[in-house]
């Protein structure tokens, strides 16, 4: 930066002397300079985001299956038409939406509770905060495997506890509802710590003086929470919700490891169906069309959240 500003002023001072070749690009206008400086980032983004998405949309208009041995054939919207008649597409999409509707609020409530606990003024805060981090730091597929063992009919700790309490063990992965419940519980456990971390950061920005003033005014604990804490936490909560909702729509690892989508395809998500069509069936055309739908779904949800933030700010 220092070199840049010095040579810029130099060339302004003695404009009659031609600047050396290697600094000539510095004489550009501000606008051209801005473009030049943004170019590397733009090229990188185009390469890793715009090109793959463009290619995805392009492929979704083709009948391209590696198992057929035939070259790609343009079929227009045929893949999307097939999708409308595909019961598994509807089932997996519905499962995805349901997982999102259950686990996002679930993780938010649990995360809020954890953040409030971690924010309490007690001596040893760091072990609590560290333990908040652990579920978040655990890879998703590991969490899935661990919980698959927890919920195992014969060897699982969950059924062991149920047995000790005098209940009969549940064959969790044998019934769509129980399997679904086990998956949702796991996702909530796994993701609430991320919620808690963001909310905890939000909590720490709330000035203590507000609570002191509220104490003076005679507001109770509960009133303080609803009148001070919650309104001031809203920006943090919305940010956490955006991230969580988008990742919930893309849920793959945990159900993949826990049930593999079973029994039948009753716990399979859209992301798993995309994976199955592309990686197992090598049907890249149809898989791409499914991925485009998921992309649109994520973009739609993000747009809604952004609109909510904007109206809040206005």
């Amino acid at each position: 930066m220092a070199v840049l500003s010095i040579s810029a002023t130099d060339s302004a001072k003695d404009s009659e002397r031609p600047s050396p070749v290697w600094t000539r690009w510095l004489d550009l206008s501000d606008r051209a300079m801005a473009v030049l400086l943004l170019l590397p980032a733009a090229v990188l983004l185009a390469l890793i985001i715009v090109y793959p998405i463009g290619r995805l949309v392009y492929t979704s208009f083709f009948n391209l299956s590696l198992t057929s041995g035939l070259p790609a054939e343009f079929v227009g919207l045929e893949n999307y038409r097939i999708m409308l008649d595909d019961p598994v597409f509807w089932e997996t999409t519905w499962n995805t939406v349901l997982i999102t509707l259950i686990t996002v609020p679930g993780a938010l409530l649990l995360g809020l509770g954890l953040a409030l606990l971690a924010n309490l003024p007690f001596a040893m805060q760091w072990p609590v905060r560290l333990s908040l981090l652990i579920p978040w730091a655990l890879p998703l597929s590991f969490a899935g495997l661990i919980f698959a063992w927890f919920f195992h009919y014969e060897y699982g700790v969950v059924n062991d506890v149920l047995n000790r309490l005098g209940f009969e063990g549940i064959i969790w992965f044998n019934s769509p509802n129980w399997a679904f419940a086990a998956i949702c519980l796991t996702i909530i456990w796994k993701t609430s710590s991320f919620m808690a971390l963001i909310i905890l950061a939000g909590l720490q920005t709330i000035p203590r003086s507000l609570y002191e003033a509220a104490d003076v005014d005679g507001a109770g604990r509960l009133r303080q929470f609803f009148e001070i804490t919650l309104p001031l936490l809203k920006p943090a909560i919305v940010v956490a919700l955006i991230f969580r909702t988008i990742t919930a729509l893309q849920t793959f690892d945990i159900p993949y490891m826990m049930t593999g989508g079973g029994p039948g395809s009753s716990t399979a998500t859209l992301a798993m169906y995309i994976h199955q069509n592309t990686v197992s069936f090598l049907d890249l055309g149809y898989g791409s069309a499914l991925a485009v739908v998921m992309f649109i779904l994520s973009m739609g949800v993000t747009a809604i959240y952004l609109r909510i933030i904007r109206t809040k700010e206005a």
């Binding site: 992965f173 044998n174 019934s175 769509p176 079973g262 029994p263 039948g264 395809s265 009753s266």
Partner: peptide, 8 residues
Amino acid sequence: NAVLAGVT
């Protein structure tokens, strides 16, 4: 799998 689990 679905039949054995009693789903179908």
